[in-house]
Simulated assay, not measured.
Amino acid sequence: MDSLNALRIFSSAAEFRSFTETAQRLGISPSAVGKAVARLEARVGVRLFHRSTRSITLTQEGQQFLDGCRRIFSEIDALESGFAQSRGAPSGRLRVSLPMIGMLMMPTLSAFMRSFPEIELDMNFSDYLVDVVNDGFDVVVRTGEATDSRLVARTLGAYRLQLVGASVYFDQAGTPDEPSDLLGHACLHHRYPTSGKLQRWPLMNAGTPLDLTLPVTASSSTVEPLIALAEAGMGITCVPDFAIRRQVLDGSLSVVLDRYTEHSGVFRAVWPYSPYPSPKLRVFVDFLAKNLLPIRADRPNPSVAT
């Protein structure tokens, strides 16, 4: 048990990159953290951290040792979860990485929290590519493909990009009938925070992409301000259909140029492979797959891969 405790102290120090923060999280003194790491280094015969007065960083051997610790803890969690299944509801902390657009998933995430109050969601919102295993996430939700053989992926649902605006705007500026009409409209763009580039509007004509340089009335690194501006009658924006489902249903936003807009994508949940996935992970992924992007009559049911 002393050895296991030392591994947990080391893993926490590697995650927080600070003996002081590790001590605060674990309820022990910083000197106790330092001594535990020093004894562990002496036992394994390698230096695990580079230390400075301001920070600590893993050595190459330390990173290898951390990977091994995570495998050990994963097996322990799986063993404990297997016994816990027969004793009660899924519980515990679940570290989840979500895209910046994930704020629009909050109704689904709130519903999940109400359904599983014993699970603590630790949510990180970022559009940066994360290392699911080495960054210590239980599950990551992203668009695109999962190519790492250490990971398991499940499709959560499909979405489309749609062009929308408010009736008050179209009453003043007119409704575009074809893509070239957008050149005379106020266009509200999503800007990728990672690259700074504007997201291309997926305008097509008879299957051929249209290369139009659209006006830039405003841009935002997140989608929520674009929806709010469009609702306020400030212009036309291009956003995922699930993000404006309510607004389209209540009439505050209207879809335009739909027959010229061809785009589809999928959200996937990705997590480290384990022969014994924890109950909290299973119920989270199952809940998102069922509730995040419900199948519409005009949209095919995406295949589910596990």
Rank of each mutant, 00 (worst) to 15 (best):
W201H: 11
S254L: 15
I227C: 04
R160A: 13
P193V: 10
T143F: 05
L229V: 00
D127M: 12
R154W: 15
P209D: 03
A218E: 14
R160Q: 15
C187L: 12
G144Y: 05
G233E: 01
R160E: 14
W201Y: 14
R154Y: 15
C238M: 09
L212R: 09
L257Q: 05
F267Q: 02
Q199I: 01
V239C: 07
D250W: 05
V152Y: 06
L129C: 02
S195K: 06
H189G: 01
E145F: 06
S219G: 09
V256S: 09
F137E: 02
V132K: 00
Y159P: 00
D211L: 10
G157P: 00
V216P: 05
D250Q: 12
R191S: 11
D181L: 11
F242R: 03
L156T: 07
G235T: 11
V164N: 07
T194H: 02
A206W: 01
G144D: 07
A206F: 03
V132N: 04
E145L: 12
A206D: 14
G196R: 04
T261I: 03
H185E: 13
D211Q: 11
S195W: 02
D148Y: 09
G265N: 06
R191H: 10
R200Y: 08
A228T: 14
A146N: 05
G144P: 04
P272I: 01
L214W: 00
D211F: 12
P176V: 10
L183W: 00
L163S: 06
A206G: 11
H263M: 07
V266E: 15
A232N: 09
V130E: 04
D241Y: 04
Y159A: 08
S195R: 03
V270W: 08
R154C: 14
Q162F: 08
S180E: 13
T222C: 05
